[in-house]
Design a protein around this nucleic acid. Sequence first.
DNA 1: ATTTTGTTTGCAACTTTATGCAAGTTTTCA
DNA 2: TGAAAACTTGCATAAAGTTGCAAACAAAAT
Lengths: 249, 249
Amino acid sequence: MLKPERQLLILREVNVHNKVLQADLSELLNVSEDTIRRDLQELAEDGKLQKVRGGAISNSFQMVGATEREIYAYAEKTAIARKAIGLFRNGMHILISGGTTNLEVARLLPPGLKVTFLTVSLPVAMQLARHTDSETLFIGGRISGDAQISTGGEVIRKLLSLSPDLCLLGANSIDPVNGLTDSDWEVVEVKQAMREVSAQTAALAISEKLNTCTKMRVCQLSELQYLITERPPDDPFLSPFRTPGLTLL
Amino acid sequence: MLKPERQLLILREVNVHNKVLQADLSELLNVSEDTIRRDLQELAEDGKLQKVRGGAISNSFQMVGATEREIYAYAEKTAIARKAIGLFRNGMHILISGGTTNLEVARLLPPGLKVTFLTVSLPVAMQLARHTDSETLFIGGRISGDAQISTGGEVIRKLLSLSPDLCLLGANSIDPVNGLTDSDWEVVEVKQAMREVSAQTAALAISEKLNTCTKMRVCQLSELQYLITERPPDDPFLSPFRTPGLTLL
DNA sequence: ATTTTGTTTGCAACTTTATGCAAGTTTTCA
DNA sequence: TGAAAACTTGCATAAAGTTGCAAACAAAAT
């Protein structure tokens, strides 16, 4: 039996069964396992299948995890989170919106920090709750399924009775002209109220979201006190955002 | 069985059940627990799931401080959850407390069910929020770290303004003499209010918690309408709980 | 037909990996 | 606090992989 012929049979076998053991192939094709191994290796190099220890698996055999969202731009978000935490002082009341960047903030809280957190995001609240030195208050309301945050009139009403020292807003998109914008009206409504009641507000955005814009405005740049990105504050990329009253971190 | 194959099965198992015990996987896949542990570790390093003591939990199910205890006895808990869901009717307002059994209820909700859920538990709310046919309202307040539920006067006040059709109380311990009891005062306070405002209340308890008692009473048995365990309603084990006005499920 | 040339194959020696086991440590929960 | 369960670390073993090499083979050239 010629080599190309044999490899074709191997390929068919793999695609039918989704996997194949080289011991089985060796027996089926009456060649040594070494030969099979070399064949599988070649086929794998051509991308026809995936070689694994002991045999091979078909290309269609994909880990479910491929679609699972691993936290996007994780390193950047961690850097932002650390800078944001630098603003915290014991005794503060801090209002936090949702999003993965804020989740990183919650995850990276240093032990010993004693602040009161107020949030509308379920995942952020869960993470914050692990930090036993600080207190966490959740602002209840109708849970908006995709963003996993409280929305609606009741949230707004509750927010208006608060006056936190600092607000951390995860930014969906931000540009110098349109300011902080978002695509979901329910979220915009909540973020607006969050900013309005807070003494100071910090927008958290990975730099890839800078200079992008979506449909609805949360606030103007001038209404923010801090803009936190993963870049150093003096990065030329940030110069469009360098305005009086706005501190870049 | 090839290693990637095994890991894929593990991942499937995790994503279907939201949590797995490595002892179960070990039996299912006929490999030692050490191997399972190593697999889980690898998958966790790849961000495909989250490793916890004794097993793993799915990524999509971000329950932050899951412990061995919390992923325990899920077969029983799913049985209970299915029975509880049998009580649901479209249009109902349903109040749900925390605990892993209620979490199962949230996870197993059938598509198409249109009810309004009210809850004080962060993990339950997160799970409920994925069920887009129903509406989820979270009752905000101070988050009690270990139980991950809202507690405090504000929760009570809010609860008193509601009148849900059904209340699902996860039971920490329950016995015929002392009724439903719990060990954490903050939780007891909330559960009491939950029961008081609801037209009907169901206690959910795996049978191992029957005939146990802890320090503080939530309510008497006679103040409950349903007791749901994983056992059939006519199980002799349940006879001490067979009282007028209390339906065993 | 025979030689040459290059490829393919199987084998042997050695390295690496996967897995299970055991001893000791940590965590959890009663 | 103390027992049970789970984790860690190290190790032994077997299976799989690697490399080098020589025999076998096919195809091309003489």
